[in-house]
Write a protein that binds this DNA or RNA. Structure first.
Lengths: 217, 217
DNA sequence: AGGTTTCGTTAGAGGCTATCACTCAATCTA
DNA sequence: TAGATTGAGTGATAGCCTCTAACGAAACCT
């Protein structure tokens, strides 16, 4: 699932192999018990190792989780890009790719978009991947027919002056706005669905998702 | 902050008082370090007690957190209702009340709407408060002018058959739909803002919030 | 005033993260 | 190929944590 073969020397290859094996076990634990229950000790036991052995591969628990977050972002960016590059793909294709990816492993989704840990700050390369995702989305919207959505001059004017985050993308403010709405609305439905806030209610979350998507044009 | 004076006997009053004091310290810890870092031991020390003493008041860590979740829901339901009952209040007033409440204590918001713990299931009284919140929202939308929003026959028809969650509320499917969109969209912006996903970007999240609110009619 | 309930304590089991000193195998170098 | 070096894995240990159990003492009720 990762760059196991990158290293040249056998030691580096072995090291990378063990690192990904650790991460595989970590994902399994996270999927079944959530990230807060992730235990280096338990992973070591599962691998037939002694607890402290893992510290050869990850300096501490936080560094392991950071690596998992990075992989999650990378995975999302890849599926997003793949969806965008597939022939005839439009923004709705991106939305459904996002939803499929999220449902595939809800805890992976929440590792990115869930409750933040007050002290934690994501490293630079992670935010780079995040902006790569945004660029993919902006490209998709820019390729679409000119925006026919509702007029929201207030915020669009504000965006015209605060578009540094779009990283030089040529899209007009209205398009930036649509990308942000896409992001927040898809996340709104997905997050509540995956967190189980719809479970008591009998309606189909997938239909709410597509309804929101339709209103987004 | 809670029903400290409910008990009749002095013992019950004392008990309730200590319970709320424990919760106060817990909220403080959660606000600064997140719910996953909440430590009964640390709370006990802060109160000048020995660790196990707290188990007289909460059976275990989970029960304390459940109590906090209940209080959070209660607090949200109360501010929501207060906003709805204030004279001349409309749906946008509810939205701003929600936003104010969320920003007041982001970790409290995430205790309700954040990453779910796979095993955890909220007790019945908590889901009752959740539906009370939904009712307040439905009432507000029902009091508004008849829905003039975009037509989404697909989902509305589905809602006509799956409206058991609205608990007998007389609003038409289109209104139920608007309430769900309100919920998911407001949560979408708020959640990303509070989690810090907008921090690198220079735009004002408050303006995005009101822009989303405007499109919601 | 006496009996009962409840609070708070210490001791301790078992889990976790993380560090340290050590052994031994794998790798590199001369 | 022999010797030096690097790195993996170990057990011991410190210091957290949750939670249980047994015990003393205070508060309450009658």
């Amino acid at each position: 699932m990762a760059d196991t073969g990158t290293g040249t020397t056998p030691r580096e290859r072995y090291r990378a192999q063990v690192r990904t094996e650790i991460k595989d076990h970590a994902w399994q634990q996270i999927a079944t018990a959530g990230a807060s229950a992730l235990s280096l000790n338990a992973i070591a036991k599962q691998m037939g190792l002694s607890g402290p052995a893992l510290y050869r591969y990850f300096a501490n628990r936080d560094e392991l989780i950071t690596a998992l977050i990075r992989d999650a972002y990378r995975s999302l960016a890849d599926t997003f890009r793949a969806a965008a590059e597939s022939p005839g793909a439009d923004v709705t294709a991106l939305a459904h790719a996002l939803r499929g990816w999220a449902i595939e492993d809800p805890q992976r989704y929440f590792l990115i978009y869930g409750t933040p840990v007050p002290g934690y700050h994501a490293p630079d390369d992670v935010t780079t991947i995040a902006s790569e995702i945004m660029t993919t989305l902006l490209d998709a919207y820019a390729a679409e027919l000119p925006a026919v959505g509702p007029e929201t001059p207030q915020f669009d004017e504000h965006l015209a002056d605060h578009r540094q985050w779009a990283d030089g993308h040529p899209a007009p403010p209205a398009t930036l706005h649509r990308a942000l709405s896409f992001w927040t609305r898809m996340h709104g439905v997905l997050s509540l669905e995956l967190a189980g806030h719809f479970t008591g209610m009998e309606f189909d979350p997938a239909l709410l998702f597509t309804a929101e998507l339709d209103e987004l044009t």
